[in-house]
Design a protein around this nucleic acid. Structure first.
Length: 212
DNA sequence: TTGTCGATTGAG
DNA sequence: TCAATCGACAAT
């Protein structure tokens, strides 16, 4: 069986089962005439309408519409007034599950990635963090909806082999459903984020948090 | 129509 | 440790 079929099957399952299949996968971007490739080292699973930390928790909106569609589509969202973050839609249509691509190792096009990331960080950490990863690959909101499983797509993803051995833990930067160990990462990778609790503390009962 | 907040980052 | 910065969405 071809690797593309394997990853397609894994993406058809829940975010929790799809996420580890994306570890070690090769993400390719040919946007703006520049070829950049990243090997994914860290991801997080978001379980759609069941998950209070998911953008889809409150149902379909204009922004999250693509999450309710077919697995393998790209969902890029804007956050904190300045950053873009990239997700891979997974699960069955209607479930709105997705996997956030949190970090990667740039394996091709380091020079292009550097041009998009004006800073003095080391090559190993160029794509460390979801916003930096998206920036290295030139991704923004207009790319939402691209089919990552289509070999003709300017942005695509392919598994290189069997899912790699990985570690799990709580997701980074969220204030709800913090007990779920839905972050997955490869061991001994310098691009993987340190854990950081998220959101702001707010008085209990002030806002609906939902049940999982 | 208004106000609050965010799946982050980089500087101080 | 904290400001930047603006779109999405819930509350008026």
């Amino acid at each position: 069986m071809r690797a593309s079929e394997t990853i397609r099957q894994r993406l058809a399952g829940s975010a929790e089962s799809a996420a580890p299949a994306l570890l070690g996968a090769l993400l390719t971007s040919e946007l703006d005439g520049r070829l950049v490739q990243a090997r994914i080292t860290e991801v997080e699973a978001y379980e759609g309408e069941l998950d209070p930390a998911s953008h889809a928790f409150r149902g379909p909106t204009k922004r999250n519409q693509v999450m309710f569609g077919a697995a393998g589509r790209l969902y890029v969202y804007f956050v904190y007034g300045m950053h873009w973050c990239a997700n891979v839609v997974c699960g069955q249509p209607g479930t709105a599950a997705a996997v956030l691509l949190r970090a990667g190792e740039i394996v091709e096009g380091v020079q292009h990635a550097r041009e998009r990331t004006p800073s003095s960080i080391s090559t190993a950490k160029l794509a460390s963090g979801p916003a930096r990863l998206a920036r290295c690959l030139g991704l923004s909101g207009g790319h939402t909806g691209l089919d990552l499983l289509d070999p003709q797509s300017p942005v695509r993803i392919e598994a290189l082999g069997e899912p790699a051995a990985h570690l799990t833990g709580p997701r980074v930067g969220i204030a709800v459903a913090v007990e779920q160990p839905w972050r997955f990462w490869l061991p001994d990778e310098p691009s993987v984020s340190p854990f950081r609790p998220g959101g702001r503390m707010r008085p209990a009962g002030n806002r609906q948090t939902g049940q999982l």
